[in-house]
Design a protein around this nucleic acid. Structure first.
Lengths: 220, 220
DNA sequence: TATAAATTAAGGGTAAACCACAACACATTA
DNA sequence: TAATGTGTTGTGGTTTACCCTTAATTTATA
């Protein structure tokens, strides 16, 4: 017995890899409760579907060209706070976990998932629940153990200025070049750099780069 | 009219992302000339199918956990040189292009391809041809323009020792630590480091890291 | 065998990274 | 209001990275 089409949850899939979208579609076609409304390869395209009343689930990648997945979710929650979002991502650093939690996504899955995990996640979310994979829950536990005042601090680990400088470091700018670009002293750039080392636990600039990649601060 | 199953090309798909495998399967199911023999998530599993006489095409990712895609292709060409291989990869540096050409893969595609490109590539390869995407051909042109003695040099740009040191650099080891680890002088590590800068054209250690990532020298 | 390349290492230099400490503005909170 | 915390800025000093030349020894390759 097949559930009538008009009762199925209509989903929008967002990922910049067409083959991955086909894989998601193929897997979700095996699920009676889901119907694919459409698949798009950017957050900008996804925005066009947010006013569509039949849309009742968004599954999106984080690392998208142009507007990021996090920005997309923020927009989704502004326009339609009740529309659930399942996040997919390749990497998962502490900072990214905080962002996923702060935009209140209903679920998270690594992009290395299999069919069953995706089915489980989708079913739980469309029935009003949430689904967070093991990877994210272990990072969440880590955040809780480092908590202050009884709750998880969802504030960014790095300040705006620090992120700005980190992005320039990732683009192979030296401290001198960064100082000139931002009209500040080299020693100031140095200070920001060192505070990032402390916060991220990086031993060298390579650790900073890895942090930036794992937290989608740069398009590598 | 459907071609009988026993006349279709039987393909083995290798990728560590199950959803991506589902996407490839879904796309190739639309192609009358292809039939999926099986899908596996590692090179080690793939080896078990190489003695299978009905297998007539392998589509594999390069960046696999454990044995790499390049190593897999080497083994394939040892056991069955006539079995064509289509390579998929996320990144594509000069070094990786050389490796793909040196193991004589019949085709290359970026992992950002769409349905049509995959169909074209597969059809050309199963009819005895080759398919190299625009990304790889432009890198090949670059290699040809830098050629000596009339043909492309497929030798590695970096030596074994240099690669070894680069991998340690990527793991956040300092020159001093690398020297201790390899029982060589710091000045020697410095020599190798500088020769890598020259060969890769990197401006800073970040350029070296990017080179390592783009050429699959490290699992990032 | 001759030539080239890889690995090893030295001396000597500049520039940049890295470290501890601290002033100041600004906001939050006690 | 005073206290505390955080972000941004900065100084001086130490260490390491980065760059050049030169060169011995071993190992491939023509």
């Amino acid at each position: 017995m097949i559930t009538p089409t008009n009762q199925r949850t209509k989903a929008l899939l967002v990922d910049d890899h067409p083959v991955f979208l086909d894989g998601l579609t193929s897997i979700l076609n095996d699920c009676d409760e889901i119907e694919i409304l459409n698949t798009v390869t950017s957050a900008e395209e996804a925005l066009q579907y947010l006013e569509n009343e039949s849309l009742s689930l968004v599954i999106t990648d984080i690392n998208l060209p142009g507007m990021s997945g996090i920005e997309l979710i923020k927009k989704i929650k502004e326009i339609n706070p009740n529309l659930p979002v399942l996040v997919l991502s390749m990497f998962l650093g502490r900072e990214l976990v905080k962002e996923i939690l702060s935009v209140e996504a209903e679920g998270y899955l690594s992009k290395k998932i299999n069919k069953n995990e995706l089915h489980d996640a989708v079913k739980r979310i469309i029935h009003g629940g949430t689904y967070y994979s093991n990877e994210i829950t272990s990072v969440m536990m880590d955040l809780i153990s480092n908590k202050k005042s009884g709750r998880i601090l969802l504030k960014h680990e790095l300040t705006h200025r620090e992120r700005e400088i980190l992005q320039l470091i990732c683009q192979e700018y030296s401290s001198k070049e960064i100082a000139n670009k931002l009209f500040i002293s080299i020693t100031t750039v140095d200070s920001h750099r060192r505070s990032m080392f402390k916060k991220t636990g990086a031993k060298s600039v390579i650790g900073l780069i890895r942090y930036a990649v794992e937290n989608n601060l740069v398009m590598w």
